[in-house]
Design a protein around this nucleic acid. Structure first.
Lengths: 145, 145
DNA sequence: TCCCTTATCTTGAATGAGTCAAGTATTTTT
DNA sequence: AAAAATACTTGACTCATTCAAGATAAGGGA
């Protein structure tokens, strides 16, 4: 778990000003990966007291643009953020409860980056979402039958 | 391109009532794959005259649940619908103009379905979105420099 | 063919994540 | 320490989508 001064260094390295909301957002996302904006806002307020929701939206956008955070937005869900950036990992999402887990692609370093026919597109990212049922929900469903 | 009576058969096969809005929505989506709800509503109204937007939302949901349409909702975009269902094709999306093209996965029949560690999830679908730049946008950008 | 049941459509309001805009405060530079 | 630039606060607003209640139309049985 990075410390506050680690976060400071990360912000400066990205040419971003060091502010309390930004540090708090970084703390929050590192502490709970795949958190949505509202949870992050809650964590930031617990940490700092009153902070505007707009500030958190701004911070999340700035940090995402800077590459310090990654935004994921599965169909039907609100945006979520994670601190694991720079690799090409993917996500497994439970259709039942919405929980998200990380997944490295079986193919390895460049998963699925070559579509058989990319229609002349220049592809820069392959986003993979595995939809399924998490262990908890699988157990619950099975038990009730 | 399927005909109206093809659509009727498809609806009956899915135990859905045959109504004018449903036929019109099927026509619209078959005519322009990856259309969003608003475009579909426009096409339906051109076809039938006034139809409530709620009706189109209801129809799209019913047809999607019945497996006659597939809903795709890339991050940052509104929902879109396509009539190509039952295979496991994926999508290439232009970050610049938002245009969507179909893509079959290079791996073949079950693309990326095996994450290296699925954390105990029972996975039923692997959704792949290739992000990039379409030929038109690539040309425009290059030409302007 | 008519009627009944039920699914579907209409109308109109509401929800809620996210954005816009103008002004104030804070950080960084000089 | 002052200036310049960036970030935060406040409050209104957008817009895709959903909710709810009543009206209408489709399909099956008599």
């Amino acid at each position: 778990m990075p410390t506050t001064s680690d976060f400071e260094r990360m912000l400066r390295a990205a040419s971003l000003r060091v502010t309390r909301p930004r540090i708090a957002v970084l703390h929050a996302v590192h502490a709970s990966p795949h958190a949505d904006t509202d949870s992050i806002l809650g964590a930031v307020r617990t940490d700092l007291g009153e902070v505007s929701h707009q500030a958190v939206y701004d911070v999340l956008r700035a940090l995402t643009n800077a590459g310090l955070l990654r935004r994921i937005q599965p169909a039907g869900y609100v945006a979520r953020y994670e601190s694991r950036v720079g690799d090409n990992h993917h996500h497994v999402i439970c259709r039942s409860c919405g929980v998200i887990a990380d997944a490295d692609c079986a193919v390895g370093h460049a998963p699925c980056l070559s579509a058989s026919d990319s229609h002349g597109f220049v592809i820069d990212e392959a986003e993979v979402i595995y939809w399924g049922t998490c262990p908890d929900c699988t157990t619950t469903t099975t038990a009730s039958s």
